[in-house]
Computed example of a mutant assay.
Amino acid sequence: MKAGTQVAIALGLLGASAAAQAQTNVTIYGIMDAAFVGERGGSAGHVNKITSGAGSASRLGFRGTEQLGDGLSAFFTLESGPRIDTGALDANNVLFNRQAFVGLKGKAGSVALGRQYTPWHQALAQVADPFGTGYAGTSKNLFPDSGANVRTSNTVTYSAPTVAGVTVDLAYSLGELAHSADGRQYGGAIGYANGPLNLRLAYNNKNAETLQPGGRTGRNTLLAANYDLKFVKLFAGFNVDKGFNSAPFGNANNPYGGVRPTASTDGRELLLGISAPIGAGTLMASVMHKDDRTAFNQDANAWGIGYLYALSKRSGVYAAYGHINNKNGAGYTVANNSESGSGNTGYNLGLRHTF
């Protein structure tokens, strides 16, 4: 082969490689979060530990997009949950336990298939809760933000294009059991964001895996809002739970001993909160109320406060405190982003780095 031909081939390969790079984008991202956590008030007594992901769950992820032409693109996300305290995974034998999906995005919106967040959880974390469902003040303390309410496998989602500030998200998860309705879950959210105002209404419906035709359903309906006044941001969330397993306890292991509490199948949760820039950091605070409308009347009140101090654009230290007042034998515990907690009081002192 002549030298000129070799050079031409090499230049052609370089050009093809450059074109491919221009069309494809893959990003490695993550959060590394570790904290000293203290828990009090449960039958386990005083618990002190180093925890991974108290503020924001630690994660290592890969996301990518490829431009396919005519406004159409392919995308994917693979996200794992490493524990900084031990080096283990959040879920045994599941590498990408947090998110794993692939999809297409075009002028008519985007469709994705795989393991994904529910629209209900996204409304709680992104709109209603000043703690973003993390730290000792998390909305998880009273809101049913755990298990399949947070993310689901075997899921198809659709997100419509934003029009005049209006967003629409839909999700359907296949139970993949003998009876098609068993284990299935569906939900959606409609939102409006314009200037300082952010509103979102979300719904979640899940069938228990009873292996009986039709199963038993649990439903969650959340109205979330925040309003940015610049010097302070106001947050609010109101949620209605109805039906079997609609509001399971974050810690279902009877953390206070004695008579085991009964998870509500007819309840309401209310959250009011604020966040405010103070110095080089952000102050977060909220108060919550659980109204159990069953015969057990196991209500609860909770409050939390926290401060995230920025060391840089990507690193920060934080402190947070949360407390719950359980009534009539209720079993709610002070959680954080990655753990359900063991008592009615908890605090975190941590360090978070994002990349």
Results as ranks from 00 to 15, higher is better:
residue 1 M to V: 08
residue 5 T to G: 01
residue 5 T to E: 10
residue 6 Q to Y: 06
residue 10 A to I: 09
residue 11 L to N: 11
residue 14 L to A: 13
residue 15 G to Y: 03
residue 17 S to I: 10
residue 18 A to V: 06
residue 22 A to M: 04
residue 26 V to A: 01
residue 32 M to W: 01
residue 35 A to R: 00
residue 36 F to H: 03
residue 47 V to K: 11
residue 54 A to R: 03
residue 61 G to L: 10
residue 65 T to Y: 05
residue 70 D to A: 15
residue 80 S to R: 09
residue 86 T to F: 12
residue 88 A to D: 14
residue 102 V to G: 11
residue 105 K to I: 04
residue 109 G to P: 03
residue 112 A to N: 01
residue 116 Q to T: 14
residue 117 Y to Q: 01
residue 122 Q to H: 08
residue 122 Q to I: 14
residue 128 A to G: 11
residue 129 D to P: 10
residue 133 T to A: 12
residue 139 S to W: 04
residue 143 F to C: 00
residue 154 N to D: 13
residue 163 V to Y: 08
residue 168 V to Y: 09
residue 171 A to Y: 11
residue 184 R to D: 10
residue 186 Y to H: 11
residue 199 L to M: 05
residue 203 Y to V: 07
residue 204 N to K: 02
residue 206 K to Y: 05
residue 209 E to T: 01
residue 210 T to N: 02
residue 212 Q to G: 00
residue 225 A to C: 05
residue 229 L to A: 08
residue 230 K to A: 14
residue 236 A to P: 01
residue 240 V to L: 04
residue 248 P to A: 05
residue 255 P to M: 10
residue 258 G to Y: 11
residue 281 G to Q: 09
residue 287 V to D: 06
residue 299 D to K: 10
residue 302 A to W: 00
residue 305 I to F: 02
residue 309 Y to R: 04
residue 310 A to P: 09
residue 312 S to W: 09
residue 312 S to D: 09
residue 318 Y to H: 06
residue 322 G to T: 03
residue 322 G to N: 04
residue 330 A to Q: 07
residue 333 T to L: 02
residue 337 N to I: 00
residue 340 S to N: 15
residue 347 Y to H: 02
residue 349 L to A: 07
